[in-house]
Design a protein around this nucleic acid. Structure first.
Lengths: 411, 411
DNA sequence: CTTTTATTTGTGAAAATCCACAAACGAACT
DNA sequence: AGTTCGTTTGTGGATTTTCACAAATAAAAG
């Protein structure tokens, strides 16, 4: 990194537009400066030469959507957000993007915006990189103030999300108005997704993803709560939304994998809804899913959606109901007592058998026992518990009872 | 039946003891008169000749237990309770019972007591039968007054049972005292059993059985509610009790079968408890069992105990929980819609398959389809519903959902 | 009318299941 | 030590399941 006196020292009191011009002069190329949300802040006054992307950006006061998605897809932003260096980007003619160099403007670890230099008049060399580094540092102070406003707005958005999550709102139209005033365009249907990890500041790892999808999110303890929406037509909306969430989770968990020890991250999401007022439900469902996934990590591996929880959706309620009426299961107690008295593993055998949906060889393989041993044990289990494993009602009841028992004893 | 002037006309104002003596004189044999509960009311003063059973009855002021059970077992009481005729009973030496004749004393259809004539001095002929018939009629007025007292006591017992059922009581000791004051010997553990039949006065058919087992019972609408206890030692008590209840139900339902159209009778019983205060629970459980059995007659055929309900124990609660949080099952809805649109029977196929615990040939047989048709349908079902039938969690969830759906749609 | 599509049924072969019977093993008891 | 009992593993054969592929059928679509 360069230790030479900053070229921009003399322009200490120049405003951000002047800064853009100065950089432009130094690099002899057009410059654009954007904030973290890709809104245009300043641009150099090179009128002569530019490309389609820059032109659209200046006209729309914001980087066009398709350019952004392309850059996200190509990993440019990921690089910008993680590296402190200028990033050289080849031309992407399909989106009207000429060859250029970009650098993130950052204060500490936080990204405030970006400086873009289009290589149209002359190529940008390694010395120019150093100029860009200095320019990025020089731009910080100018962006901080603006950042203040952004922070406040961000804050208000997060407060709005909390309102939605907790259901402290009156009518759907009021919510819609407030969303508009915050310049939020929530697309139906939407749902709440929660990612949880103990002892990590999740948002720092997920930040690029959150920015990419422009999600509304809040942090609550060790959870990060996200609102995910999906615009679309017809009846495939829900499916599209679920696909989007699954994709997001795959990306997120993939990203977190390297940072957090495995099994420490839990994620779940609620059902999708079309009315704002129903986000409370989606939030509760997401919380439920996460809770269950914490209690049954193996059993619910690969499941994240509330809808897909299957019996686990009911389990806590069933436990509560059993406790309320003081129901104790003496069938299962008998089997466990038998295990304790004879150092056998009937309970484990039964659970494995049921988990394998009654397939004997799968069960035998999982338990590393001979198939006849399994058959013997199952016969014994039927005797001890006085049940008929061929009867689906009893089989299902046993399955539920075993999972309920896990809930009671292990945790 | 005899129309000749009643022999007992002249003894119209004689008391019941004198009546016994008069009958004894006429038949030249010892006579005992008992009430419906087999308590001794009067006996003729033939001191000379008698048998062991009569001697014990007079000494204990009640017919000995083992004699009663023997007579119940041999169907003597069943005959006495249903017929208006004298019943000739052969000697049963094992219980010290000599040959004798008995007749029920009845007012309308209600049995007030019995007259017993022991055949010890001379055999009892058909003319004697007529005397007994007249004697039974003559005894009615004497027993009516006593019957009034009995009724009142019965009433108080029934009130007591209602108290137990509804839980309007303070302490266990208070209940115990009250039970003793009512001369009830409730043996632990006990449970509540309910038999229900639409449009029938159940108690009239079950009366003999209720008397046999000396049960405490009340009628509530079209239900008869029974308290069944079982004295015994050690840990086999519960099992003995359950066996007793099952026996009782088998007898009862067998008896009712001929009178009530099949499927109209529903019976269920709660768990067994040791504390009086818990009878409330047992009652609620019995009610629950009956309710479920009414909703799922086929599925719960052969099940009567609350414990054995399996998943059906949870079903109403699950339905409630689903309704509370407005959960609708679109997986199942999709399948049902498919059936509606294509006139197929996927839902039925799925349910049969799950009921058969995943056995394909049982399923195919029940549905009268080729096994490959079944396999094809199952594959389609997996596609339509987007489920993996090999996954036990999903399988069980589907099973529950199907049963829940039955609850919602059919009833 | 032909063509397509969804569904049912048939055939055959490999794999899995079920069942009865027997041998081997270790722990507990006499 | 021998015996008993509960448990595990092995063998063999009848039955069931699974899967792929093909033919027949009927209804819907072109």
């Amino acid at each position: 990194m360069s230790n030479q006196p900053n070229v921009f020292q003399q322009f200490q009191h120049a405003d951000i537009d002047e800064l853009a011009d100065v950089i432009g002069e130094l690099l002899q190329n057009p410059i654009t400066i954007e904030d973290a949300d890709h809104k245009l802040i300043a641009y150099s006054s090179h009128s002569e030469s530019t490309d389609q992307a820059r032109w659209s950006t200046i006209m729309g006061r914001r980087v066009p959507e398709k350019v952004l998605t392309r850059l996200w897809k190509d990993g440019v932003f990921q690089e910008l957000l993680t590296k402190d260096e200028p990033v050289h980007i080849p031309a992407k003619d399909e989106v009207g993007l000429g060859k250029r160099v970009a650098i993130a403007i950052r204060k500490g670890s936080e990204v405030l915006g970006y400086i873009w230099a289009i290589e149209v008049n002359r190529p940008i060399t390694e010395e120019d990189d150093d100029i860009l580094r200095q320019a990025a540092r020089a731009a910080v102070s100018r962006l901080v103030q603006r950042q203040g406003k952004r922070k406040a707005e961000e804050q208000r958005r997060k407060e709005f999300l909390w309102e939605l999550l907790l259901g402290n709102h009156s009518s759907d139209t009021l919510i819609r108005q407030k969303a508009e005033s915050l310049q939020l365009q929530l697309s139906t249907p939407y749902l709440i997704c929660i990612i949880e990890a103990a002892g990590t500041r999740l948002e720092q790892y997920l930040y690029p993803l959150l920015m990419r999808d422009k999600l509304l999110w809040v942090v609550d303890g060790n959870q990060i709560v996200l609102l995910i929406g999906q615009a679309g037509a017809g009846k495939q909306q829900d499916e599209a939304l679920v696909r989007k969430v699954k994709q997001f989770l795959a990306d997120s968990l993939g990203k977190l994998e390297s940072h957090v020890s495995e099994g420490q991250v839990t994620a779940g999401y609620g059902r999708s809804y079309k009315a704002y007022a129903d986000l409370v439900k989606s939030y509760r469902e997401a919380l439920h899913a996460v809770k269950i996934k914490r209690l049954f990590p193996q059993e619910t591996a690969g499941i994240h959606g509330y809808r897909e929880l299957g019996i686990y959706r009911y389990l806590l309620k069933l436990k509560q109901w059993d406790e309320e009426q003081g129901y104790e299961n003496e069938r299962l107690a008998r089997l466990k007592q038998y295990d304790a008295e004879n150092q056998t593993a009937m309970t484990e055998t039964l659970e494995t058998y049921l988990d394998a949906a009654g397939k004997v060889n799968i069960t035998a393989n999982r338990l590393h026992i001979h198939i006849n041993t399994l058959s013997y044990r199952l016969k014994r289990i039927e005797e001890i518990m006085q049940v008929d494993l061929e009867d689906m009602n009893q089989r299902v009841a046993l399955y539920l009872e075993l999972k309920l028992d896990k809930l009671n004893s292990e945790r």
